[in-house]
Amino acid sequence: MNFSRLSVLVGAVTAAAVSIAAFPSSAHALDFNWSFSNVTGSTSGTVTGTVNGLVEGANSGGPPAVVTVTSAPLAASAGLGTYTFSDGTFTVTGGNITFADWHGAFGSNNLFLGTNAGGGTYYPQLADTGFNIANSNPGASVSFTSAAVPFDIPGGATIPAVGGLLALGLMRKARKSLASNTRFSEPIREMVS
């Protein structure tokens, strides 16, 4: 193997290593959709929203979780928004929320997301002075579904993979360039017609 080919190979391996080191994989944030319907409150309807930024295991405290109400009955439309953590926790097991006992506030609105099982304090409720959407029946629970991003590559492998493909493309281009330079021992001096 001559020196120019070796230098191209070393350059490609170095580029791939730098791209992997520059973008290390981290804990993958999980996002969920949630909903609950009124059963015991004074306002009819269903409340839906999202929980973003959870990780596998116990998620106690506020950040990085972001809880948002995305739809509610017209009477409770003042409750639409992103809620600031007050207290509670989410537990994620196997990519699913298996326990929720969370309370947040948005202005004078209060949101409670509880699975009301396994020692939970809260039941599903969105409330303010003008509305109350709740389900305080024993065993009541907010429904969570995964909001996984399609085509997401776990572990942040996208950047290193693209870096590796770029390095392979550069190696191929260099190989073609070397091959075209060594194919003819003498340049063509005249054209035959």
Rank of each mutant, 00 (worst) to 15 (best):
T40W: 00
V192D: 08
W102L: 00
R175Y: 15
G45H: 07
T129C: 00
L80V: 15
T91I: 12
G163P: 12
G169P: 12
G119A: 02
N109P: 14
A72P: 11
V162P: 00
V69F: 06
L30M: 08
G81M: 10
F36P: 09
G120Q: 03
T89R: 11
A16I: 02
N116R: 05
A16L: 08
V55C: 05
V149T: 12
K173F: 11
T68Q: 02
A78N: 13
G79W: 03
N135F: 05
G61F: 07
V51Y: 09
F90Y: 11
H103S: 10
L165S: 15
S108W: 07
T89A: 05
S177Q: 12
N59C: 01
A167F: 07
G156S: 03
T121F: 00
F90C: 00
F23Y: 07
E56S: 09
G79N: 06
S143N: 08
T14Y: 11
N181E: 10
T82L: 02
G49E: 00
T93G: 00
N33A: 09
T50L: 01
R172D: 06
E56C: 08
L80G: 08
G57K: 10
V18R: 14
L113Q: 09
P138N: 13
A78S: 13
P150G: 01
F99P: 04
V13M: 04
S25Y: 08
F23E: 06
G114L: 00
L74C: 12
A72Q: 14
T50W: 01
G53V: 12
A75P: 14
S193Y: 13
T82H: 04
N132R: 15
S185R: 11
T145L: 06
R172Q: 15
K176N: 14
R189F: 10
L168N: 14
A167I: 02
V92I: 15
F3A: 10
F36K: 13
A27H: 11
T48L: 01
A117V: 12
L54R: 06
P64T: 11
T43M: 03
F32Y: 06
A72N: 09
T14M: 09
M1G: 15
W34D: 01
P150C: 03
V47M: 00
G107F: 05
T43Q: 06
T91R: 13
E56R: 03
H28G: 06
A27D: 13
S25H: 05
G164V: 15
F99I: 00
V10L: 10
A134C: 04
T93M: 06
P150Y: 01
T115Y: 10
V162H: 01
P160F: 03
D101P: 03
T50M: 05
L74P: 14
A117Q: 13
G45R: 07
V162E: 00
L6R: 06
A167D: 04
D152G: 15
N33F: 07
L170V: 09
G104N: 00
I20W: 01
G118P: 08
V55Y: 13
D152S: 14
R183G: 10
T182N: 04
T48C: 03
E186S: 01
S25A: 06
S35Q: 07
S185N: 11
P73T: 09
S19R: 03
G139T: 07
